[in-house]
Amino acid sequence: MTHLITAAELAHEIEDVVVLDVRWALTTANSPAGREDYDAGHVPGAFFVDLDTELAAPPGDGGRHPLPEPAVLERWLRRCGITEHSRVVAYDGRESYAAARAWWVLRWAGVPDVRVLDGGYAAWVAARLPVSTEDAADRHGDFEVRRGQLPTLDAAGAARLARDGLLLDARAPERYAGETEPIDPVAGHVPGAVNSPTAAWLAEDGTFRRDLAEVWKRVTVGRDAQAGPVGVYCGSGVTAAHEMLALAVLGVDSVLYPGSWSEWIRDPSRPVATGPQPG
């Protein structure tokens, strides 16, 4: 299955797909910035989706972005007119971090055909395609959420995978090393996890790199990439989904730890490792 779509391809198919605008940034979480961007201009017909309230449950024991409640998810999926047969395209501003969260959550809920606009809204504008400032009119879809269509890891599963398989930490190297932690109260990483910053999978223009296989080769150097399952976590399960999207493009299956670091550190008995990536 193709997980990415170009701006030109989306323009060609736009009458036949449901388009979701998921513009969001970690630095603007819990602010209306994403909605303001949508109001200023968006892909015609796109529905705005709020990552913090519609693609995640409220922060709590499950971390900063727990998986959304099925009823909340189902309500907005239906508002967007999504059915069992819908083809869905998600985009955000540029790098596809938030769009990848939508891509993963919708597939977890059972939506079979979800793609991400490579390069986001920036790619759409760069292609000089039309934009709109009109809100998409509510539709009446009938999609029924079937949570759990993708596997997930809990903290214990993440610990086992870090020990016996391959657990990737998608955060920046300095956060992995525990040198700085601007968001969560404890710095460091899950012991045994391998640092694989998700930004390394992107080209300068915010699209996915064309040499993803080479990036994967560097991540797995000295390791057997086929030895077992691959798990991914980040701070709260958003950018981890972006790395999983890159792996999916390569045909590599991976499993999300939704609670990620923000859940891991809620239990003080869980070990914390610091220091840079070995080797």
Rank of each mutant, 00 (worst) to 15 (best):
T2D: 12
T2V: 07
T2Q: 13
L4H: 07
I5N: 01
A8W: 00
L10W: 03
A11Y: 02
E13I: 00
I14Y: 01
E15N: 08
D16H: 15
V17S: 03
W24G: 08
L26Y: 10
L26R: 07
E36C: 00
H42V: 11
V43T: 06
P44S: 10
A46W: 06
D52P: 06
L55C: 11
A57Q: 05
P59Q: 09
D61R: 14
P68F: 11
P68W: 12
L73H: 04
W76L: 02
R78C: 14
R79L: 09
E84P: 03
E84H: 13
H85V: 09
H85D: 15
R87H: 15
A90S: 14
Y91Q: 04
D92S: 07
E95S: 13
E95I: 11
S96T: 14
Y97Q: 04
Y97E: 03
A99Q: 10
A100P: 07
A102F: 04
P112R: 14
A123Q: 08
A123E: 07
W124S: 04
A126T: 10
A126Y: 00
A127S: 15
R128V: 07
L129R: 05
L129T: 05
T133K: 06
D138I: 01
H140E: 15
H140T: 14
R146Y: 12
L150E: 04
L150Y: 08
T152R: 11
L153M: 04
L153N: 01
A156W: 09
G157Q: 10
L161C: 11
L161Q: 11
L161A: 04
R163Y: 01
A170G: 13
A172E: 12
P173C: 08
P173F: 02
R175V: 08
Y176P: 00
G178E: 12
E179D: 15
T180G: 08
T180I: 15
P182K: 05
I183S: 09
D184E: 12
P185L: 06
P185D: 09
A187M: 12
V190M: 10
A193I: 04
N195M: 07
P197A: 01
A199F: 10
A200V: 13
A203F: 12
E204V: 13
E204L: 13
R209L: 01
R209G: 11
T220W: 00
T220C: 14
G222T: 05
R223I: 01
D224E: 13
P229L: 01
V230A: 00
Y233P: 00
S236E: 08
A241V: 14
A241K: 02
A246Y: 01
V252S: 00
L256R: 05
L256M: 08
Y257R: 02
S260Y: 05
E263Q: 15
W264T: 08
I265R: 02
R266A: 13
P268K: 01
S269Y: 05
P271H: 12
A273N: 03
T274V: 14
P276A: 02
Q277V: 12
P278W: 06
